[in-house]
């Protein structure tokens, strides 16, 4: 089905914008920065919308674009954009309630290098298969696996230091 009119673009965006904001928020850890990434992703998408019928898997294509905009924004920041900008204060001791737990988890996730963070988010929070993450990141499946392993190992160290526990299954 051709997807090239403005109304089709608006319909597509309406159906996907919440998901894109969620993904960008997990990447960035800050809702304003996340919205910047979504804004730029959608702008790029619209600029190419007339030719979009050639794209087979539009969602994967847009996810790829989102990740690359996120990584590009990080790169643009160069050395003076401290990633700590958007971090809440690091928890000093064991977490005592669920809100604090979430702060520790988000802080831990944001300490991963941006590319590794994108891999972990896509693989474990979006449940994408290794091959699809590799395609989105433009790297080999082996790299995705090793980045996942490094990322989880680093998260494990933080979680263990702050005595975070596995929630009960409900």
């Amino acid at each position: 089905m051709p997807r090239r009119t403005d109304s089709e673009y608006l319909a597509y965006v309406e159906g996907r914008i919440a998901g894109l904001r969620r993904a960008a928020y997990l990447f960035c850890g800050d809702s304003h920065a996340a919205d910047d990434v979504v804004q730029e992703t959608l702008t790029k998408l619209y600029s190419r919308w007339p030719g979009i019928t050639q794209v087979e898997n539009l969602d994967a294509y847009v996810h790829t674009m989102l990740v690359r905009v996120f990584l590009d924004e990080r790169r643009r920041g160069w050395w003076k954009v401290a990633l700590l900008d958007w971090l809440p204060e690091r928890a000093a001791g064991p977490a005592t309630d669920r809100a604090e737990d979430r702060s520790v988890i988000r802080t831990a996730l944001l300490t991963l290098p941006p590319r590794q963070r994108a891999v972990v988010v896509l693989r474990y929070l979006f449940d994408l298969p290794v091959n699809e993450v590799a395609q989105i990141l433009g790297c080999s499946p082996g790299t995705v696996k090793s980045q996942c392993s490094h990322g989880l190992d680093r998260l494990r160290q933080t979680f263990d230091q702050t005595a975070l526990t596995v929630p009960d299954r409900s």
Partner: peptide
């Protein structure tokens, strides 16, 4: 543990 993280901005 990671999945306790809310994803809603």
């Amino acid at each position: 543990i990671l999945r306790q993280l809310p994803d809603e901005p």
